[in-house]
Design a protein around this nucleic acid. Structure first.
Lengths: 197, 197
DNA sequence: AGCTTGACATACGGCCCGTATGTGGCCTAT
DNA sequence: ATAGGCCACATACGGGCCGTATGTCAAGCT
């Protein structure tokens, strides 16, 4: 059966994104060569500029893919928790753990913001952030949290988790530091609880 | 009076750092040209590679300078507060406000980590972080805070403040968002207080 | 004063990105 | 069925930038 035109195109896009994901993770955005990257995918730079416009466009596509994966996973973990509050903590811990992945760290947390700008402006809307925000919104409506700005709280929590992950990843004994980070994260999050006012 | 050799060298280093600070802030690290940058300082790339080794070395020097300035300012503000707890909150707010400076944002918060790696590994030790850590340490000894890991707490607080700043800077109405961010920051920090356990 | 040292300038090579142009196969219309 | 257009991708080209290797001239020591 002959392949449809649009299908091979979709396949090529996927190949390029996969190769870019690998190259960006291993060498970093700046050091990744488009020639090598496309050759790895069995294509040339022509395909790249046709599909993604430029190098930044490719990074954006990669970030979007990873970010989406992260969000769905975080939501899944959060939903598995008993209540919304436990879910929030679980999401935070999950976020910290995901950020331990060098791929996530390098691409989404380091090069992403530096090259693409503020994450909340990304097309993927930093899905992870949105999920956290919604959970916080629900908790505020339920009266469990202080009536702080949900967006602000979600942002700061994510920022805290992010830095925790960077810290853990850079440490010599990640497994030793992880529980400390999670403990501190839980403590900070508890500051949002109404009871602690 | 004839200038000493070491003196002119120090002056040239300062000129290069100043020019780099401007160029990096305006164009970003990647887009800043070393030729233009050195010409702006009245020198050539030769001086640059002799003094700083490479482009990264220059960025490191710039980051170190800004970071040091930030730390001294934060400590000054913190020391002016009534007690250590108020000082911690004041430092956090000061950090958020300083991060509103485009120069700080672009160089220290975006390009810095992307190019130089984790801030806590920098020679300046991310002085800001150290200051926060020490304050937290004191508060734990005083029994005001839960006995969490001071390093972890300092890291997460800084991360929260950092993201708050990025958020504010990217927003349309910074002055409108700033108080929300500070409020959320204070709430999170309150989670560290023993009384809230 | 002559020599050495080193701070800085100049010259060179190589890589990489983005664009402009070429081409071969798929799709459609008659 | 086939002829032509279109489009996804390949190839070719130019410009810029970084890092190094080499040159130069003044400062400092003897």
């Amino acid at each position: 059966m002959a392949k449809k035109r649009s299908q091979t195109m979709e396949e090529n896009r996927a190949k390029l994104i996969a190769a870019a994901r690998k190259a960006f993770a291993e060498k970093g955005y700046a050091a990744a060569s488009m020639d090598e990257l496309t050759a790895e995918a069995g294509l040339t730079r022509g395909a790249l500029y046709h599909n993604f416009g430029d190098k930044r466009g490719l990074l954006a596509a990669v970030v979007d893919k990873i970010d989406t994966e992260m969000a769905s996973r975080a939501q899944e973990i959060g939903a598995r928790a008993g209540d919304d509050w436990q879910g929030l903590l679980a999401e935070g811990a999950a976020y910290i753990e995901m950020a331990l992945d060098p791929e996530v760290q390098r691409i989404v947390l380091l090069d992403g913001p530096a090259v693409l700008g503020d994450p909340s402006q990304w097309p993927s809307q930093s899905s992870c952030l949105q999920a956290t925000r919604q959970t916080i919104d629900r908790l505020i409506v339920q009266g469990a949290l202080k009536p702080v700005d949900a967006e602000a709280a979600a942002r700061l929590l994510n920022g805290a988790a992010l830095n925790a992950a960077l810290w853990i990843a850079a440490s010599d004994e990640p497994q030793d530091v992880l529980p400390k980070a999670v403990e501190a994260f839980d403590a900070l999050a508890a500051g949002l609880l109404k009871a602690s006012a």
